[in-house]
Amino acid sequence: MLRDPAFRSSLVTFLAFAVFIVPTTFVISLGAALLVARTRVMQSFFRTVFFLPTACSYVVAALVWKMSIFSGIRSGLANAVLGWFGADSIPWLSLADPPWYWLVIVTARLWLQVGFYMILFLAGIQRISPTLYEAAAIDGAEGWKVFRHITLPQLRATSTAVLLLLLINAFQAFDEFYNILSTFGTYPPYARPPLVYLYYTALGSGQDFGHGSAGAVILTLIIAIVAVVQGRILRLGDRGD
């Protein structure tokens, strides 16, 4: 299985995707949580609005992204916006070079998951004792310093949980990839994470259960190794967390 270049490239896709999507979602959802936490007016409104996409199915969102926002014709939302600036329509999902399809996949996933992690961060932020901020203010700390030395360390438990969940989610990448990129019965050879590749190998008409299981074992090993390493780095389960 490891000698199969398509499987190797799927592993690269999947690691690259995880490396990109995990920090991006982390930063955006933390930023959103900080903004919402500081809002005095309509806080619950913003909280709800940002959280709402979480309730949407990945499949539904993927189809909306594919067929209405990023469709290749002039009436697609993205191309209509380009049209205002006089730019040509871009067939977002058909081009392999430049890889616009990543924009579609990543924005869909961000839209779907940022709200959920924002809520987790928000809960964490609201648990930080105000006395810490008061003490910092008396010491003359403000802005970035407060964030760097109080908010972030106090959010450590939440951040660890969020990172772990994000990583697991990234490794489960299937729904939006499959629904955005597969055309009738085929899937392009790029942006193909291992679950999609294994779906076609083992469950597709290929029915190659041997290679399918081998791939699944390799995948499990990778996830286990990453989880252990991440646990080490973040000292998961340490007392005092």
């Binding site: 990023f70 290749g72 014709i73 067939p91 058909s94 055309t183 009738f184």
Partner: peptide, 10 residues
């Protein structure tokens, strides 16, 4: 070639 039509060739 037309690319990215909302509904595919079928």
């Amino acid at each position: 070639l037309l690319l990215g039509a909302p509904k595919d060739w079928f």
